[in-house]
Design a protein around this nucleic acid. Structure first.
Lengths: 115, 115
DNA sequence: AATAAGTGAAACCAAATGGTATCTCTTTAT
DNA sequence: ATAAAGAGATACCATTTGGTTTCACTTATT
């Protein structure tokens, strides 16, 4: 059974959360460290981290009194796969191919050479 | 300047809207046709279509009294690019490489990890 | 001309979202 | 031992979101 994409897409829908992901791409960070980069309270950042966790996009480990947040980019894989379904629609080479086929098809309508 | 990703990510965050996109991948549809596939009013579907339009994911053309909605998958390109930034984190081959490097690094510390 | 079909738009509603402030708990430092 | 630092939890608030109902407008159909 495929993973539930909804919590992941949901997590990605907020710009603050996307920023957090890129920050964690650089290095693991505590909640306080993440909060330092934003103009909002630590509690608000914490909520974002919970949403990211729900989407499977981060993991948290305790280290003394600190909680270290790490990027779990594997959760992006199903999202990329979902997008892949549409790849044939926006790949420019395929666009060219499609145009060619359509031109061919319209030719077929005019001159039926199939008998 | 790069396009604003926010409206697109926002549009993708709802399962109904993602379903609509896949439907439009098969063929263009009027609002009424799209609505037939969901257990909600046409007005609700219309709202979803507006959000998809804000995200650049669909285009609409008038045809008599009907409005034909088409997929514009090109708007997914920036999203795929955004995801691409993380690709190095979840590519399985790179994972293997990373594990190897980490193993090498832990060896460098002089610790024996066999005990 | 009258009616039906397709859509747009507005008012409204409950629930979710993104934020705050405050209090508590555990861990570290003086 | 006391205080400070890091984090969790809760209550609260305004706005957004996803849905509804209703009414108006334009285009086809008979």
């Amino acid at each position: 059974m495929p993973p539930d994409l909804q919590p992941t897409f949901r997590a990605l829908a907020d710009p603050t959360r996307r920023d957090i992901l890129r920050m964690l791409g650089d290095r693991d960070m505590t909640i306080a460290e993440v909060s330092d980069h934003f103009d909002m309270t630590r509690a608000a950042v914490k909520k974002h981290l919970v949403v990211l966790g729900d989407g499977g996009l981060i993991t948290v480990r305790a280290e003394g009194r600190e909680k270290i947040n790490s990027l779990n980019a594997h959760a992006l894989r199903p999202v990329a796969d979902w997008l892949g379904w549409f790849e044939s629609f926006w790949d420019t080479r395929l666009d060219a191919l499609k145009s060619a086929i359509e031109k061919e098809t319209s030719n077929d309508t005019g001159h039926n050479n199939n008998d």
